[in-house]
Design a protein around this nucleic acid. Structure first.
Lengths: 335, 335
DNA sequence: TTGTAGGCGTTATCAC
DNA sequence: GTGATAACGCCTACAA
């Protein structure tokens, strides 16, 4: 415990320099001493201190990936994209889960202990990021509109996607509409896009059926269930849920109350998580290229690190995939 | 870029000591100077060097989680267990994907840049781990039988689980048996357990139907398909696949060749990944408590770090879950 | 080929 | 309250 290069040098009866040279193959050492040094290192159980090395070299040797979570269908896809790219470049990476409740930011990021970073956490302030970002630590942010010399941003078109849902609803000839919205930056963007479409296409959005969740399954299930309990409410023909997880749990709530999807009400989700294609009914939803997002983020970061590319702003587009959960009885009728 | 505490001190016209005191609230500084120091730090865009801090304090402030992969159904569950526990203890953690091809082990582990580690990677040698493990860096290994003062191991009973499959096959009265085995340490263990049962219960294991995969879907599909192509082969009544992914792809191969599961042949898997309950037919398999494994690993590591508990050896047990893919036509008949 | 010494950025010790 | 100065463990001129 606590064996340093000095101890090894002393044990081997040589200088620190020779020891360092021998251990790293970074300088000339006679074969005989080399052997003595190896033996001493092994005998003492020497473990070089990466921290000291990093202080000296000003390189950590890895980049950081900072996200809300490292598990779940969505984050699994995302990190897979990142992982695949860095793996192929032989670029070491560490992943940190920055839980939003604790609002704690890892030292890794706060104290610049990475050679670059991918950030997908809302509660890390722009100010911190711009302070950290530099030539020797470029940053790629996802789902946040922040760009600079050393900061690139990659966005998935939330607003446009949600607008597209509204447009689709209009073209399918639905007469009445409800929705379950999310929260945070994504939530706002999706809501804005959808509301714009509601207004542009003069959709009949039922004011009593604008529900709010947090993108996760549980709360969406609750609010849907509660809404259904109120006998004054009349079911719209279609409900747009701002995430697939919410859409799926809404369907569950609806079916528990005796409604059939899509016969009694259509549902449109968003994200196109793998499960979306496997549920009954399969979900009509907006496909968001999550895996590609991960790949693009990693590629962009690597490019900034290697070629000193300046920060850029990229937007990934989405498309609607029609499955079984949304069928209009008025299709084709003029509105 | 490269603003140090010295620069801040100079800018504020005070000593480094006072600057450090002010920035960390770790010593007495007059209000007036404190303000000057804050202003200087902000003006210069000072970012403290975590590396230097760590060199000084001999603490990294986080533990490491090292696994083959960070994505996929199995690793997703596992990391969720780890994540949940550390989150609740407010213990920072970083996750590293140690891909077996590149055989690169992150500096984080090799150069002891963590305050503790959970290791789930086969190609990291025992020797390295025992060298690293110490009072200030305890280690928990999964799926590997290595224990020491500062190393705990957590195992899921592979051998016993596979034995249980054999026992079940016997009790269901199957007359002929085939299998698809995996590789690595897990593979050996499962094979040993299964073969012991084959011998103890005198199962009729068809020698020509001992197939080999790598736990993943693809190769298992290939070998199954190839085996089916050979007209000399006669299908056993039941096939044990050493992982669910292999079981599922074997079913796919079988059905493509016109066989029905379980009418023509029964299949038993192992792992009980979430998908196992959702396939058609739903998989009869051995449930392995992956999420619990993650939790236990994290809890154990935290305990070793906080209470200086010595290394221990724990085994998680499994159980068989009967679903639809395995049905015997001889059930109850004496063997 | 070998060794001495300075520096990486921080905190801790100890005088003032 | 304040400020030199010595660690922390390593690398690397530079000198021998």
């Amino acid at each position: 415990m606590g064996v340093t290069i000095k101890d090894v040098a002393r044990e081997a009866g040589v200088s620190v320099t020779s020891t360092s040279y021998a251990l790293n193959n970074s300088g000339p050492v006679s074969e005989e001493k080399k052997q003595r040094i190896y033996d001493a290192a092994k005998k003492l159980g020497y473990v070089p201190s990466g921290v000291a090395k990093s202080l000296q070299s000003k390189k950590m040797g890895f980049v950081g990936y900072f996200a809300y979570s490292l598990s779940g269908p969505m984050f699994g896809e995302l990190i897979k994209g990142v992982e695949d790219v860095f793996n192929c470049y032989s670029q070491d990476m560490v992943a940190c889960c920055c839980s939003p409740h604790i609002r704690k930011v890892t030292r890794l990021l706060k104290e610049k202990m990475v050679d670059g970073a991918i950030v997908f956490v809302e509660h890390i302030e722009d100010e911190l990021l711009t302070r950290i970002a530099s030539e020797d630590c470029p940053i790629v942010v996802m789902d946040r509109d922040l760009t600079g010399d050393y900061i690139s941003s990659i966005l998935i078109d939330n607003q446009g996607s949600a607008y597209e849902v509204g447009r689709y609803i209009s073209r399918q000839g639905f007469q009445s509409v409800g929705c379950i919205m999310g929260n945070g930056y994504d939530g706002e963007q999706r809501e804005k896009g959808f509301m714009d479409a509601v207004s542009d296409y003069r959709l009949n959005l039922q004011k009593d059926c604008i529900l709010r969740g947090d993108f996760q399954a549980e709360i969406a299930y609750e609010v849907m269930k509660q809404w259904l309990m109120d006998k004054n409410h009349v079911l719209p023909e279609v409900i747009f849920a701002a995430s697939d997880e919410m859409a799926i749990s809404a369907i569950q709530a609806l079916e528990e109350c005796g409604y059939k999807v899509p016969q009694d009400v259509s549902i449109i989700g968003m994200d196109d998580i793998p499960m979306a294609a496997m549920t009954k009914p399969a979900l009509t939803t907006i496909h968001r290229p999550i895996y590609e997002l991960g790949r693009l983020a990693a590629t962009t970061l690597y490019d900034m690190m290697q070629n000193h590319t300046k920060g850029s702003r990229q937007i990934l587009s989405t498309y609607l995939v029609e499955r079984e959960s949304c069928v209009s009885r008025h299709k084709g009728e003029p509105i």
